[in-house]
Design a binder for these strands. Structure first.
Lengths: 147, 147
DNA sequence: AGGAACATGACAACATATTGTCAATATGTT
DNA sequence: AACATATTGACAATATGTTGTCATGTTCCT
């Protein structure tokens, strides 16, 4: 069966939708123990792993979502005492978001829980598939964001 | 920088989330002209391209989503006169979902609109990336659904 | 300085997706 | 036939995500 590039591309798109939903469910299950969800975990991770202090808008750009969706998740994390705001000398309203002690503890526990999960998942693919898929995903997110 | 398979896997996961959101936005833009969204388009496509008549539950399994989410989309498509139900001799309640004439017209118009879009997207990747990424995505959806 | 353009947080409306539950219907076993 | 089990559609609650809008704050240009 000789398929054109656009046919394969379309199939990839549909498969990405499917896998994305599955990964969300996986993340929800892993994070449930800590009262978190995939969505909140993603935001927590973006803050924890950033090299600089981030504002809500910057977190949104990091995870590739709207400012507004991210704001809601940050508010939920604050309510759960996982993060707090600190003042930003560069901007009166756009405060920095930082993890609390508790937030850091939860993030690291999740990190350690996620490692073997990721190792198992990685075993489902060959090394070539891992590397090439990552390369392709980066190209796609770049392509659709115009970079 | 020598990265472990689990690190790459984790990065792929985060990138899949990002790309999935972008593709949703792309689909929304393409489908808007026909009063559709990515989500409804996906359901329409599953029905249009199926080799057999499908019930709502079967559509849900095809697109990899919950029965309930799919039911809502099907109801919306029915309200928009894109699909209709026909009786299923095998099951009193689980009717078959089929495209209306109008639904078929819209699906084909979208198909033709999507083709050049997919061709452009495919050009962002190498042939190897296309093939390997598709293979990897299939493996992942299989892995997480236990097949 | 002043004013235009842009970025940000806040709030709201809506679409989408998951989970949970219930009753109706099939299916499979004895 | 009768019962247990699973599937299905229907309905509801909740979380997540997008878009739109507004007021505030920042930046850039002249």
């Amino acid at each position: 069966m000789n398929e054109s590039p656009e046919d394969i591309f379309t199939k990839i798109v549909l498969e990405i939708f499917k896998v994305s939903g599955m990964l969300n469910t996986e993340g929800d299950m892993m994070a449930e123990e800590f009262g978190l969800s995939s969505a909140r975990w993603k935001v927590l991770g973006a803050i924890a792993q950033a090299e600089q202090l981030l504002t809500v808008s910057e977190i949104a750009r990091t995870v590739g979502q709207s400012r507004q969706a991210t704001q809601r998740l940050v508010d939920a994390l604050k309510k759960a005492s996982l993060i707090c705001f600190i003042s930003n000398p560069k901007h009166k309203r756009a405060k920095f978001v930082v993890l609390t002690k508790y937030g850091e503890q939860v993030f690291w526990k999740l990190w350690h829980k996620q490692l073997p999960w990721a190792a198992s998942g990685a075993e489902a693919l060959t090394t070539a598939e891992l590397l090439t898929t990552f390369s392709a995903m980066k190209k796609l997110s770049g392509y659709f964001s115009g970079n």
